[in-house]
Amino acid sequence: MSFINYSSREINCKIVYYGPGLCGKTTNLQYIYNKTSPDAKGKMISLATETERTLFFDFLPLSMGDIHGFKTRFHLYTVPGQVFYDASRKLILKGVDGVVFVADSQVERMEANLESLDNLRENLEDHGFDLDKLPYVVQYNKQDLPNAAPLDELKNLLNPTGVPDFSAVAVSGDGVFTTLKAVAKLVLLELKKRR
């Protein structure tokens, strides 16, 4: 849930990167962390297993500039993608202001994408959120791979409601900031609408 502090003049929001295992959620955050100047970011925290799979979450606090004298601060979180970590995934969605669904574009991961998308919708409903009413964008990651499905097909399957969507190659940073800015903007517009 966004938190507006008139004393420190800050607008704080929470964005969650969701998606199937190994789709590139952590890679998105790592790229953002590496490319952001030190004064605009805090420490990136990864609660991961010994094999560098996300165990609970990654966390990256980020400043995205001032608006009317208020600092906009975004707390970026990823969820663990592996199916059996569902209880943890649900916890991280608590108080979310915006969601990025990171899809793995590889044809053979399509079922995992769909399963994760269903899971996102269900877990949001458990917190009383409706995905169709939340600031929400989709990223088709790993577009550089030879087995990536065509964009049209990905859009049809994974973005039936036509929310803003972006193709990406998170390891090289393509589309990473475009995705982040799009969701951050939707979050602020939503806050303005709800004032």
Binding site: M64, H68, K181, K185, L188, L191, K192, R195
Partner: peptide, 18 residues
């Protein structure tokens, strides 16, 4: 009064137009 009463859609646009 909320801070968001002063903020316009254009302000939000500008924040991301760098």
């Amino acid at each position: 009064p909320s801070i968001f009463e002063e903020i316009t859609d254009a302000d939000i646009d500008n924040l991301f137009n760098d």
